[in-house]
Simulated scan of single mutants.
Amino acid sequence: MPARILVAEDDRKQAALIRRYLEREGYEAAVVHDGRAALAHARERAPDLLLLDVVLPGVDGLDVCRSVRAERDVPIIMLTARAGEDDLLLGLALGADDYLTKPYRPRELVARVAAVLRRAARAARAEPQRYAVGDLVVDLARHEVHAGGRPVGTTPAEFAILACLAASPGRAFTRGLLLERVGGFDRDVTGRTIDMHVMNLRRKVEPVPTRPRYLRTVFGVGYKLVDPSEEELGGAR
């Protein structure tokens, strides 16, 4: 069955263009033009992916993202005319898996949709595996994360990054390698995007996010996941 995409975009001409490109690639696309309609559609129809414009009438895209993410684990891509880092960080912190800054090419948007759906499908097809690094547990079969015995909610992108690191504790992964493993983002912006996802993960799993015990930065390389009781700090933090 074709993946069902919900497009929430108040610019009707732009929404029609997005829908046309998605349907050309074989997706089933539905379009709404305000935040309340986006919430209602997401709850009633359970689409496979949401494309959310940040600026929507009634309820803005960030609030839609927050509400949907609290209810179910569905991939979300934000569309924004705001290029400021704070806005991008906020969108990712609320649970978005990727973002595109306007203006963008429709083909690029379709490519991002395909990449995010592939990543979500890989997570859903994961073999029954469970990684434990200290008291941080990543359960691939259940698609669950626990830190210190408490459940931790993650976005599909965050879960993919954490699962990749947990599969090889102590190994340093470059940002580029993480991008390849999680099936990620546009190469021009993805290094910073990986950093944002790691920062969000630290807020969720670390006792003190500013002094990470598990998700360590390896300076000049990237990131690694360690067991605090076994790892020697060396040059990483």
Rank of each mutant, 00 (worst) to 15 (best):
L49A: 04
R69C: 12
M78L: 15
D86V: 10
V68P: 08
L88V: 14
D63F: 05
L51E: 01
I76A: 04
L90H: 10
R45I: 11
R82P: 02
D86G: 10
L62E: 09
R72I: 03
V55A: 14
V74G: 10
V74M: 10
R72E: 14
I76Y: 04
L52P: 04
T80D: 04
D73Y: 07
L52W: 02
L62C: 04
A46H: 08
L50C: 02
L50D: 02
D87Q: 13
T80P: 07
V59H: 05
L92I: 15
R69L: 12
D60G: 06
A42C: 11
L51S: 03
G58H: 09
C65S: 05
M78Y: 08
V68I: 12
I76P: 02
L50N: 01
P75S: 11
S67M: 09
R43L: 10
G58M: 09
R72Y: 09
P57D: 03
D87F: 14
L51T: 07
R45Y: 05
R72P: 08
R66F: 02
V64C: 00
C65V: 01
M78Q: 12
L49H: 00
I77K: 05
A81F: 14
P75G: 12
L62Y: 04
D63V: 00
A70S: 15
A93G: 15
R69G: 10
R43W: 08
L49G: 00
G58D: 01
L51M: 01
H41S: 12
V59S: 01
P75N: 09
P47V: 03
A70V: 08
L50Y: 01
D86M: 11
A70R: 14
L88N: 12
G61E: 10
E85P: 06
L62F: 05
G84A: 15
A70T: 12
R43F: 10
R69K: 15
V74F: 06
L88C: 06
E71M: 06
I77G: 03
D53K: 03
L49E: 02
I76V: 15
A46F: 07
V55D: 13
D53R: 01
C65A: 11
D73M: 13
G91E: 04
G61T: 05
A81R: 12
V54C: 13
L79Y: 07
A42H: 06
P75W: 11
L56F: 12
L90M: 14
L50T: 02
G61W: 03
M78I: 13
S67I: 03
R66C: 05
E85C: 05
A81Y: 13
L62S: 08
G91D: 08
A42K: 00
G61L: 00
D73P: 04
V64Y: 06
R66G: 03
D73F: 01
I76C: 01
V64M: 06
V64I: 04
G84I: 06
L79G: 00
R72W: 03
L92D: 02
P75K: 09
L90A: 14
E85F: 14
V55W: 10
P57S: 05
G91C: 01
V74D: 09
D73K: 13
